[in-house]
Nucleic acid binder design. Structure first.
Length: 293
DNA sequence: CCGCGGGCCTGAGAGC
DNA sequence: TGCTCTCAGGCCCGCG
């Protein structure tokens, strides 16, 4: 489900109830996520204060007063829901699932801020890990991650460099978290359309022979930054699973130009093209063959 | 090393 | 209604 804008929306929702708050009680109801929850998960969180809640790529990172970092990933279907903590162990219909809450509520944080934070993840591709803060940047999940696309460091020269020599498609390259962090299937398609670049184009065409960025690389960087900023402003895209932490939907799906719009008219001014769906490396790609070259 | 396809899970929706 | 099939915002692993 979630790409950078959705994860950032979740972060902004959790920040006010997590930062500066302590974990009073932690329920690990279903430990078998993509990886098993860490050993002594609840015990290592309870009593600790969250000093800061950050994000790197699609990972949420809670800095703990113990010196550890809690790393959280939403996978395809993960979501966090913030509700008022009434002290009961769980909401939901106890006639069916006594004290178990909704289906797929795998982890619950009871915070000193008075918030109950429930992690729900039907497909269980999500992840929670604990590690010393000092080990984060060297951790295999983080180590190879490319630049943050909204950071100042992310510029055409960088992108061209990362794509130079790549035989794969632009679509595949931008989906690669080592090239740039946080994009997924939706925002890659949307950024490529905005930049007027074909998803089938070779990634290496963003770099000139000398390795310097082409005008297309500049266009693409602007398109990536633009679409991500707008999507964050809209609270992300809600196709099926994504919710803000208050349960409301995001709005950006209404602003998609190509994603999930197969057969629709290309929204670019003056373009008469029709949006097509193709499959690249096993994933749907949506694009306009007329204006994306 | 690089790029691709399969697999991990569950649920929704389409088609019969 | 109910079955079967396909597909889904991600990522890891193994193969060639």
């Amino acid at each position: 489900m979630p790409e950078l804008p959705e994860v950032e929306t979740v972060r902004l929702g959790l920040q006010p109830v997590m930062e500066g708050a302590r974990f009073l009680k932690v329920e690990a109801r279903r430990p078998d996520l993509r990886r098993p929850l860490p050993r002594d998960f609840a015990r290592r969180l309870e009593g600790r204060t969250v000093e800061g809640l950050g994000r790197r790529a699609k990972y949420l990172l809670a800095d703990l007063s113990s010196g550890e970092v809690l790393l959280m990933h939403l996978g395809m279907s993960g979501s966090f829901r913030v509700t008022k903590d009434d002290g009961e162990s769980a909401p939901g219909d106890f006639h069916h699932e006594r004290s178990k809450g909704q289906a797929h509520d795998h982890v619950v944080f009871h915070m000193s801020s008075g918030a109950r934070i429930t992690f729900n993840d039907p497909r269980r591709f999500g992840l929670m890990l604990l590690m010393p803060r000092s080990e984060l940047s060297d951790h295999p999940l983080i180590k190879e991650t490319g630049p943050e696309p909204l950071g100042n460091a992310f510029a055409a020269a960088m992108l061209a460099q990362a794509c130079a020599g790549k035989k794969t498609s632009l679509k595949a390259a931008l989906s690669d978290q080592k090239v740039v962090a946080g994009l997924g299937n939706i925002y890659v398609c949307e950024a490529l359309h905005r930049a007027g670049l074909s998803p089938k184009r070779r990634a290496s065409t963003l770099a000139s022979r000398r390795g310097t960025p082409t005008p297309q690389a500049e266009e693409l960087v602007d398109a990536i930054k633009g679409v991500l900023r707008e999507a964050i402003k809209a609270g992300g895209s809600s196709l099926r699973d994504h919710r803000r932490t208050d349960g409301e939907l995001g709005d950006f799906q209404h602003d998609f130009r190509v994603y999930d719009r197969e057969g629709g008219r290309c929204p670019r001014r003056g373009c008469r093209g029709v949006i097509r769906r193709i499959v690249q490396t096993g994933r749907s790609t949506f694009y306009c063959p007329a204006c994306q070259r």
